[in-house]
């Protein structure tokens, strides 16, 4: 059986809010290492990969592999019944029909309990190759969100070019064009504001801004985001979560015919 207790319901709320625009139904794969999720969007353009390691929970107990097939709209409805600061416990039997969610207030004696019916989801898992990316950019997640939002006002696509000069996000649209260039930057007062660019060779790729802007819904999960790029492979957008857990988005590039 599964029993996984999260100190703050907020973490799961935010994770689900971040992916619900991309994915409708998905399996939460539980085993002794934690709770993982991998799902493509309907258009097969983007892939979400989440890992909540067992260390992110206390306690965490899951003695065999359990796949919880959950409709994310249903999960969102139930998670709205939790206060952000509530302690959340997920429970399921070994071959479950439902997943049980218990929300406890640390301050009062309130205890809420919900069951969500599970679905059989025949989900294909993709093998994500280990990639040595040509460029990695770590930057404030709010900054990435702002750039994405600003350029989306002008265009559907963004070109991301990374050179030793810095990283340039640029777009061309009907009303004109725009670009934002960031250079490596160390903020002495607040390292959350740092921009670090790790480059082994120049990269230039084009991506859909609609997808990037969806990924940016995860900005509330982490003050930092890491973009990893290599020519002609999907972009990796990664938000680090507590206890070495993560929420990753992969986005296939747009490539010239």
């Amino acid at each position: 059986m599964l029993e996984a207790r999260l100190e703050q319901a907020n973490l799961l709320k935010k994770v689900v809010d971040s992916i619900t625009n991309l994915v409708q139904d998905c399996n939460f794969d539980c085993n002794d290492s934690g709770i993982a999720l991998q799902a493509m969007d309907n258009s097969h353009v983007a892939l979400v990969a989440m890992m909540l390691r067992s260390d992110a929970f206390s306690p965490f107990r899951c003695d065999r592999n359990i796949a919880l097939g959950i409709n994310l709209t249903s999960l969102t409805k139930v998670l709205r019944c939790a206060q952000n600061e509530d302690i959340l416990t997920l429970k399921a039997e070994d071959a479950p029909d439902v997943v049980n969610l218990v929300f406890e207030s640390a301050e009062s004696d309130r205890l809420s309990e919900y069951d969500i019916k599970l679905m059989d989801i025949d989900q294909e898992h993709l093998g994500i190759p280990d990639t040595e990316y040509a460029a990695s950019i770590t930057m404030p997640s709010a900054e990435f969100q702002r750039i994405t939002r600003d350029l989306l006002a002008l265009s559907e696509s963004v070109s991301i070019e990374c050179t030793k000069e810095g990283v340039k996000f640029s777009c061309q649209g009907d009303i004109g064009s725009g670009s934002v260039t960031l250079r490596s930057h160390t903020n002495v007062d607040n390292e959350d504001r740092n921009v670090s660019i790790d480059l082994s060779e120049p990269v230039s790729l084009m991506f859909s801004l609609k997808y990037l802007s969806n990924f940016c819904k995860a900005s509330g999960l982490s003050s930092r985001v890491k973009l990893s790029l290599s020519n002609e492979v999907p972009l990796l957008v990664e938000y680090a979560l507590p206890s070495n857990s993560f929420l990753r988005f992969y986005l296939a590039p747009k490539i010239g015919d």
Partner: peptide
């Protein structure tokens, strides 16, 4: 002219 690629073109089904 650019075309949106599918993620399946890069990551194989297991």
């Amino acid at each position: 002219k650019t075309q949106q690629r599918s993620i399946l073109g890069f990551f194989a089904k297991k």
